[in-house]
């Protein structure tokens, strides 16, 4: 069994990597021109935030914090389908 303190030394590096990616993704979301561009960046941002949720759950050693991971992974497809349906219906009228 690997001791938990080994992971505790590596966790700040992982937090730093994924938080930096989160900041750059959200800058892309805030400065996008068209709505399709924004939805594409929101997809990548949500996938990044799922990993940050799992890292927070590993940091506190609490499995209850992971309750939002699977609805967040399902929301990616739901947002894509809803926005695409809106865009294609708006063209046909």
């Amino acid at each position: 069994m690997v001791s938990y303190s080994v992971l505790e030394g590596v966790l700040p590096l992982l937090f730093g990597l994924f938080t930096l990616a989160m900041i750059i993704y959200s800058l892309r979301v805030f400065t996008s021109k068209s709505v399709s561009d924004m939805v594409l960046a929101v997809d990548a941002l949500t996938i990044d935030l799922i990993i940050i949720f799992v890292l927070i759950g590993l940091y506190y050693k609490s499995p209850y914090l992971l309750i939002g991971v699977i609805p967040l992974a399902a929301w990616i497809l739901i947002l894509d389908i809803v926005v695409s349906r809106y865009l294609s219906k708006g063209d046909r009228k």
């Binding site: 399709s36 939805v39 594409l40 997809d43 990616i76 497809l77 947002l79 894509d80 389908i81 926005v83 695409s84 349906r85 865009l87 294609s88």
Partner: peptide
């Protein structure tokens, strides 16, 4: 699948 749907609708 989501990015494919989005590209088609766009």
């Amino acid at each position: 699948a989501g990015s494919h749907i989005l590209a088609r609708a766009t």
